[in-house]
């Protein structure tokens, strides 16, 4: 299994896209840190970039990779290797190399320019998002045979999680403004990994604002160490479940 993962990483390293992704992140982070002499401001801009770019690149790159790699996968299926191992190995290879690119492109500048808990939270959630959206991408790629449909679905899911979901949530807040909403909102944020990641970092970044009004509820939940562990578990579940479904489908799939 590790052998397949290794070959996947080699394959990815050859096609330069991951390298340009790392350089792109590096340029953005460095320019943000150099343009602004207040690292906390750069961190907040970096967070906005991270929340958009990482899921997008993660999901698109992974989906395309699987479709382009389908012949290699078919070849491997012919070998005496378990099907689930093939997919898991591919997953590890893709998610691993994307995380590596992220570590070089964003985590490195953050640790240099803005070391501290906020930066650490940013790095950890970034890696979590990479793994989650690679997992979702695998789910999309396995579910449909048609490349265009698969990529379309991946894009749609990305758009749903980063824009539509929050829009719907805001609409919900407008509609039910008169009711006590802290618990429902807390509940709904769990169904969007991007929201989870955002709130986790925000717990450190906008602590002053979150102490006010209703923020106390979120602080009591996300701000404690138990809340932190809970968030990490939730993020892990988000990475694991689509992958398990993908593996299940892939095992029975007629290639």
């Amino acid at each position: 299994m590790l052998k397949i993962a290794k070959y996947t990483v080699y394959d990815i390293a050859r096609n330069k896209i991951i390298l340009s992704y790392a350089i792109f992140l590096l340029v953005i982070s460095l320019s943000l840190f150099m343009l602004d002499n207040d690292p906390s401001r750069s961190l907040s801009s970096l967070m906005s970039v991270m929340l958009i770019v990482i899921p997008l690149v993660g999901i698109i790159f992974s989906t395309i990779f699987i479709y382009n790699n389908s012949e290699f996968i078919e070849l491997l299926v012919a070998q005496p290797v378990k099907r689930s191992y093939i997919l898991l190995a591919d997953y590890l290879g893709v998610a691993g190399s994307l995380s590596l690119a992220y570590l070089i492109g964003m985590a490195l500048p953050v640790t240099i320019y803005a070391p501290g808990t906020t930066g650490l939270y940013l790095i950890v959630t970034g890696i979590a998002l990479t793994f989650i959206f690679t997992s979702i991408a695998f789910f999309c790629a396995v579910i449909s045979r048609d490349k265009a449909r698969g990529i379309g679905m991946a894009l749609l899911l990305w758009f749903f999680f980063s824009v539509v979901y929050d829009g719907l949530l805001m609409g919900f807040l407008f509609l039910f403004n008169d009711y006590p909403l802290e618990k429902p909102v807390l509940f709904f944020t769990m169904f969007n990994p991007i929201d989870l990641a955002r709130i986790t970092v925000m717990m450190k970044m906008d602590i002053a604002a979150l102490m006010g009004y209703t923020g106390a509820v979120y602080r009591d939940f996300f701000g404690t160490s138990i809340g932190m562990v809970f968030t990490l578990i939730l993020l892990a579940i988000w990475a694991v479940i689509p992958l398990i479904i993908a593996v299940q489908i892939f095992r029975k799939k007629d290639l």
């Binding site: 824009v163 929050d166 909102v185 929201d195 925000m202 970044m205 604002a209 009004y213 209703t214």
Partner: peptide
């Protein structure tokens, strides 16, 4: 303004929709 009217909306702060 939105947070002033709907305090719970603070959860969506820094979301892409909000920036838009």
């Amino acid at each position: 303004k939105i947070v002033e009217n709907i305090p719970y909306a603070i959860t969506l702060f820094r979301s892409f929709v909000v920036s838009l």
